[in-house]
């Protein structure tokens, strides 16, 4: 009889604990802190910081190796991946400054893990590439022979860094548009900028061995997302001409191509 009661009480206790955990998870306030911290660590301390060891080492290496590669397509690939990397450093800094001021949405729930996963993989690729460059440069004293032939071993790391970073930002733009609370820093213009950056990045991925695509992405991002260009976005909500142009582009009404080309070149108003 005592044993029977003990089992009943034990079962009730287990059910109570399970229900408590379920209710806590159902009703706890959800926030975007996790991704905000992740972005911050990658942008401030990780490979997307232009003062980090990874960034400097990788870019110095790519600058060195570019003229030594014989194949035009290989050179184009190096340049496209390097310019894309630089573009996402700017993009990442912009997002990092705003993302801590955001709210939880369904888009966040659906896509944030993907972003974090891709950032993590990109960071690992950057670390591996940096280590490989450092170790082997030390061993061979940085000879031109080593440099020219090292690309075969470095290429995969760089491609992984490129692919994972593009994947991360493809989703990050959507999350930003859905979650960031400031109407000044999150509006139709920023949404258009992120969509266009995504299109240019996809274009670079599809045509990675053709020169110029990565540079287009980098120039575009520099036109809108650098601190020096901040006023373009800050003043957008009061600029009816810019708002009209954004509407023409997004709805692709008559004459949109010409306005779009000016937009790509940094002139939205």
């Amino acid at each position: 009889m005592k044993r029977k009661w003990f089992i009943v009480i034990l079962i009730l206790a287990i059910v109570a604990v399970v229900l408590t955990i379920v209710f806590i998870n159902l009703f706890r306030e959800r926030d975007t802190r996790s991704l905000a911290n992740n972005i911050n660590s990658v942008v401030v301390e990780g490979y997307l910081n232009d003062e980090s060891d990874e960034y400097r080492t990788i870019n110095e290496y790519l600058d060195t190796i570019y003229p030594l590669i014989g194949s035009q397509e290989e050179r184009a690939e190096i340049q496209n991946m390097q310019n894309t990397y630089k573009a996402y450093v700017v993009y990442g800094e912009f997002v990092n400054k705003q993302f801590v001021f955001s709210t939880y949405t369904n888009v966040y729930r659906e896509k944030s893990r993907n972003v974090s996963r891709n950032f993590s993989r990109a960071q690992n690729s950057a670390n591996s590439l940096e280590n490989y460059i450092e170790e082997n440069r030390d061993v061979t004293s940085g000879s031109d022979f080593w440099t020219a032939n090292s690309w075969a071993n470095c290429k995969q790391y760089m491609q992984d860094l490129f692919t994972y970073t593009v994947n991360a930002f493809d989703n990050l733009g959507d999350i930003y548009t859905s979650c960031v609370t400031s109407p000044t820093m999150n509006n139709d213009l920023t949404a258009l900028v992120f969509e266009t950056a995504k299109a240019l990045a996809d274009d670079t991925v599809q045509n990675v061995t053709t020169a110029g695509h990565g540079a287009s992405l980098l120039n575009f991002v520099n036109n809108y997302l650098t601190p020096e260009q901040e006023d373009v976005i800050l003043e957008y909500i009061y600029n009816t001409t810019a708002q009209g142009n954004v509407k023409i582009i997004t709805e692709q009404t008559e004459g949109w191509e010409e306005i779009y080309n000016r937009f790509l070149a940094g002139a939205i108003a």
């Binding site: 401030v44 400054k97 801590v100 001021f101 901040e230 800050l234 009061y238």
Partner: peptide, 21 residues
């Protein structure tokens, strides 16, 4: 406080740009 710099920049942005605009 790993976001301290971001908070300070937001204050600067608000006071010098968003508010006067």
């Amino acid at each position: 406080n790993n976001m301290a710099e971001i908070y300070l920049e937001k204050l600067e942005q608000f006071v010098t740009k968003i508010l006067p605009n």
